[in-house]
């Protein structure tokens, strides 16, 4: 993977410091909002692995987010009351299995067919939950109690506590980010970035590229499931719309808004989109028109996303400094 430059590292550390410090002073409303941003960021980073690093444009990524969320609902809802130790791995395994199925069918194709297949197969899962009486159909599911993390009889984490949940999510965000950096630097990452650039060449070098694409698809899907699991635990509410294709479209917007193939771009994109969705409705009831226009403008004028601005921003002050020093 491309090296994360020094200014970006510094920026990320400052952002992490801010995130660690914020709950001690910030308004509850904004703590809530930051949790929301972090969950979206995990979801978007998982999609970045697929779209930005493997070159697979999926329009069905929300299916895994939704399945992760339903996993919590099913294993920690009214029907069952397993501990989070059981609910989390079971949810992630379910998501991974769904990703194997969707991935196995879709990666046999490419280009437009891949986009359409991921979309249609995700819709299949959407309709499954939409029409299932067992899991509340289109009304969705409620989770009455927040999960807590116990070790034996000792309560380690009470996720019902907003601040605990905040740090729990922040921890997962950092772990997911570092995990993705690690696998992108590992041999696996070399292969998928090669596939993204020129799959035919990678195959002629001796790699069975389909396997690597599928592995990337499953990892991305499972991490999306993790984000969905957190979302369900956070809101206590799950609806089929979590799996819907609007959710898939939105998360693609987040990734591209922030900057594709950067990992930190999706975090910036998550901040931008959640803030927009929070503040725009205050201005106009028909804020989605404004949001649509903003996306159009990003595609037209900033095709590499907000993070591509950073280069420009850092360059301008250094230019000014140089001129001053020379003067």
């Amino acid at each position: 993977m491309q090296k994360i430059t020094k200014p970006v590292q510094l920026f990320l550390l400052i952002a992490l410091g801010f995130a660690l410090w914020f709950p001690s002073v910030g308004d509850e409303f904004y703590v809530e909002l930051l949790i929301n941003i972090m969950i979206i960021a995990i979801f978007a980073m998982s999609l970045d692995l697929l779209v930005g690093y493997t070159g697979l444009v999926s329009l069905g990524h929300a299916a895994f987010f939704g399945i992760g969320a339903y996993g919590l609902g099913i294993f920690f809802g009214e029907m069952n009351q397993y501990s989070i130790w059981a609910a989390l791995p079971v949810s992630l395994i379910l998501t991974a299995l769904a990703a194997v199925v969707i991935g196995w069918i879709s990666i046999r194709t490419s280009g437009i067919y891949f986009i359409m297949l991921t979309l249609a197969l995700a819709q299949m899962f959407y309709y499954y939950f939409f029409e299932s009486k067992l899991y509340g159909g289109d009304d969705g599911m409620f989770i009455s109690t927040k999960p807590d993390v116990n070790f034996g009889s000792i309560q380690l984490l009470d996720l019902g506590n907003e601040h605990t949940f905040y740090y729990f999510t922040l921890g997962i965000l950092v772990v997911v980010f570092l995990f993705l950096v690690m696998i992108l630097r590992a041999p696996f990452g070399q292969v998928i970035t090669g596939i993204c650039a020129n799959e035919q060449r990678v195959r002629s070098l001796g790699y069975a590229t389909q396997r690597y694409k599928l592995a990337s698809f499953v990892i991305a899907g499972t991490l999306a499931g993790l984000a969905g699991f957190l979302e369900a635990a956070h809101t206590g509410f799950i609806t089929p719309s979590y799996l819907g294709w609007h959710e898939s479209g939105n998360i693609l917007v987040v990734v591209i808004l922030g900057g594709l193939g950067t990992l930190y771009g999706p975090i910036i994109g998550a901040v931008a989109l959640v803030l927009l969705e929070d503040f725009l409705p205050d201005i106009t009831e028909h804020w989605k028109i404004v949001l649509g226009m903003i996306i159009v403008c990003v595609v037209l004028f900033l095709p590499n996303g907000i993070s591509s601005l950073s280069g420009k921003i850092f360059r301008i002050p250094s230019q000014i400094m140089k001129t001053i020093l020379r003067g």
Partner: peptide, 28 residues
């Protein structure tokens, strides 16, 4: 017309934004 030389990703994004605009215009 802007999308002809662009990849599928940008096409998906821009036409997705058009949906948001059209849907909201309909509600309006």
């Amino acid at each position: 017309a802007y999308l002809y030389k662009k990849g599928h990703l940008h096409q998906v994004l821009l036409t997705y934004a058009l949906i948001l605009i059209f849907d909201e215009a309909q509600r309006f």
